[in-house]
């Protein structure tokens, strides 16, 4: 420990740089606009009550409101009633900055909808990837058929192609099919994971043939073998692949940016955040950082809970 002090010093410097934007993101999501502007309030901000100006403006009393409120303020003129109403609105609209920021994050834009979309898209992508890749991987690993080597060579070749790189022709194909601005557009290009096939094939190669022969002796068809014998044995590898796939697609921004234009109902979390940024003015730093925090948190929390599996999953591609 004492001899290693310089190592810790270096690593802690690194930690500061790595943590800084996370710290700032979470901290700003707690603070009032004034505190952000002046750069004060420490990590949590002072959490003084603040007035949401937009809320006050929204409740600006109309003629009718004043008339309606007149009985509550007997003997006062309209002007006083109006002032009283504004004061009331200000009290109602004042809240702690943290509450303000997170409320705004969820009300200013349909953040819940975005999160739902994120879940729908990542889950569908993963499920379809498994449904397509698992049988193919099994056939490539365990069945002998003419053309197997050619198919596997094709898989190896396709591993060279990053899907982002061919985004443009894919976009044209989808546009021609009239599929842009649909869930399908978000999911379809990712339905085939050659990496998944490759990975599962390598895994299946290690499964003893005896297990499959035993299943055949029990009268199982090849399809039953895939789902009832191979799938259960592949759970650890599949879990790692799930993490790899989900992290990649939850965080993906490029592809949704291309195929979803304008239709907010289809926005994935990163797209939603992007729009928030585009539409907001300076006073929206707090809510925006709250949105960012909400979007980043699920994966980070999951990662903290199952670090080993996550690191395994993300670095899967390093396995040979």
């Amino acid at each position: 420990m004492t001899r290693d002090w310089w190592k810790h010093l270096l690593l802690i410097l690194g930690v500061i740089v790595v943590i800084a934007p996370f710290y700032m993101m979470v901290s700003y999501s707690f603070k009032s606009p004034g505190e952000i502007d002046r750069g004060e309030g420490g990590f949590f901000g002072r959490q003084e009550l603040m007035v949401d100006e937009r809320c006050v403006v929204r409740r600006d009393p109309s003629r009718a409101d004043i008339t309606a409120a007149a009985p509550r303020f007997p003997g006062q003129n309209d002007r006083d009633i109006r002032d009283a109403l504004v004061a009331e609105a200000e009290t109602d609209c004042s809240m702690r900055p943290v509450v303000f920021n997170y409320t705004m994050a969820f009300t200013e834009a349909p953040l819940l909808r975005y999160l739902m979309n994120g879940i729908i898209v990542t889950a569908s992508i993963f499920l379809i990837q498994v449904v397509v890749a698992l049988p193919a991987a099994y056939a490539l690993a365990k069945l002998k058929f003419w053309g197997r080597d050619a198919v596997f060579a094709l898989v190896l070749f396709c591993l060279l192609i990053p899907v982002h790189a061919i985004a443009l022709p894919l976009y044209i194909l989808l546009a021609k099919l009239g599929l842009t601005n649909t869930y399908a557009a978000l999911v379809v290009p990712w339905t085939i994971s050659v990496f998944g096939i490759f990975l599962m094939r390598q895994f299946f190669m290690t499964v003893p043939d005896d297990l499959i022969d035993a299943a055949r002796m029990d009268g199982m068809s090849e399809f039953a073998i895939v789902w009832r014998v191979m799938l259960p044995t592949a759970i650890p590898a599949l879990l790692a692949f799930a993490i790899f796939s989900i992290v990649a697609h939850w965080n993906d921004y490029f592809w949704p940016r291309i195929v979803v234009t304008g239709n907010r109902d289809l926005f994935t979390p990163p797209l939603g955040l992007r729009e928030f940024k585009g539409g907001g003015d300076g006073s929206f730093f707090g809510p925006m950082m709250a949105t960012a925090t909400v979007i980043v948190t699920p994966l980070i929390v999951a990662f903290m809970l199952a670090q080993r599996r996550f690191i395994e999953g993300i670095t899967l591609s390093g396995m040979k």
Binding site: F22, M24, A292, F310
Partner: peptide, 18 residues
């Protein structure tokens, strides 16, 4: 290890805004 790995996990777009 955990801290250094955080940026890999985090949504890059959100972190870009940060």
């Amino acid at each position: 290890k955990t801290i250094y790995f955080l940026p890999v996990m985090a949504t890059l777009l959100a972190m870009a805004i940060a």
